[in-house]
Design a protein around this nucleic acid. Sequence first.
RNA 1: UCCACAGUAGCUCAGCGGUAGAGCAAUCGGCUGUUAACCGAUCGGUCGUAGGUUCGAUCCCUACCUGUGGAGCCA
Length: 464
Amino acid sequence: MKSTTFVRELFRNGHVFINQTIAVSGWVRTIRSSKTFGFMELNDGSFFKNIQVVFDDILPNFKEISKLNISSSVTVYGKFIETPNAKQPFEIRAENIEVEGNSAPDYPLQKKRHSLEYLRTIAHLRPRSNMFSAVFRVRSVAAYAIHQFFFEKGFVSAHTPIITGSDCEGAGEMFRVTTFDLEKLGKKEVSQLDYTTDFFGCPASLTVSGQLNGESLALAFGKIYTFGPTFRAENSNTARHAAEFWMVEPEMAFADLQDNMELAEEMLKYVIRYIMETCPEEMEFFHRFVDTSLLDRLNHVVSTTFGKVTYTEAIAILTHAKKEFEFPVVWGMDLQTEHERYLAEEHFQKPVFVIDYPKEIKAFYMRLNDDGKTVAAMDCLVPGIGEIIGGSQREERTNILTLRMKELGLDLSEYAWYLDLRKYGETKHAGFGLGFERLLMYVTGITNIRDVILFPRTPGTLRF
RNA sequence: UCCACAGUAGCUCAGCGGUAGAGCAAUCGGCUGUUAACCGAUCGGUCGUAGGUUCGAUCCCUACCUGUGGAGCCA
């Protein structure tokens, strides 16, 4: 690779380069030319903004340059100068331009706004658009912020398995993993399949959560987190669901529900603040073109204390709300989207934790409260997105846990290892799962999960 | 999976029971430091697919496909 300068450096540290000859490699975002000179804007992927390059007919290949198609790749050598009276802060006066690769004239991204729907059909090229340049850089920075947050707090990063044998983690439909040649199975009933001859010797699936495995690490390291892909085979056709998404799942030993909520709130604020500080250009773009209340809302979120209500209190709020709900509000029901939206968007108008749900509507591993009716669960609801975090304090009392598992008809032998975690030095512990893409939607204002994933996987769609 | 809406040029859209139009893009030319540059010309479509009604369908009807929005399920 040649010794080139990143556009990011020019914008962040431009004074260092003034009046020096530099080289920049990138893709032509726009180009316009007259008889004897022209301008191109170059984007090298290192920064949201473009660098303007001025070229004129002292270049031997001036004709070729002025006819370049959009998205051609070039390396520009020239002097970096300030342009205080122009729209752009500085530019490069080209002394030499090498064409790396021309682009075809039918390049599908034009110099105008495209619909997000159209851009989804060219997901392999959309990272070159302003919108997705911003989205995927923020995604990268958000991931880094999460790792940094947990490392600063002394958490150990854990890699839990993608393939699992546990068929009933209770978090949704699972994708089956097999080496069986399904086409050769013919019309054989699934019940006749002999899984002892399959790759793992038993039914296997893609994970819907790393939590149970994560607990194993937490009860050795104290504080751990996982950050990896997760798979749900639910036939969910909404703007908030994908079949493959990334989840962040911290797990803490010697921690209760209160500690859990504090961690979740601190983490969300940390990540949002980090992104706003690190990606001001991208956030400004989202604020202008995606959601004009974005920055105000995020500034509010990082400076406010999240709401906290019990499920029972939430039911009372909804019952007294001057609003007609499609689904009647009854204690014991699961909160519907309209209820969650009312709580987060109208009643609290900020992120809110709802805790202590009826045990019937929550997973087996959540800790039973003293009332015998509710469990120490927590959902964090945010305006516009809904549930962004779901978590709980875990049931550490073996007798209660096994009772609960039997009630739900789980096979205790499959979970023997999980029960061992209680058998050998039980401790209270808690954790949660953060939907990474939902966080990105919240931070960018983008309302469709397909637009925060490079190549989204949804029911009926597996392109690219 | 259910409900609703939509599918017309590469993109964004208009149109109408009598076989199609704009802006942008593309191509060619012009051009005085432009910045979604500008000006002129040219090119561009079996109107999602398959049936049906009709003298005649892009337009009306039915089914299907695809997309979008909402709901369920959840992160």
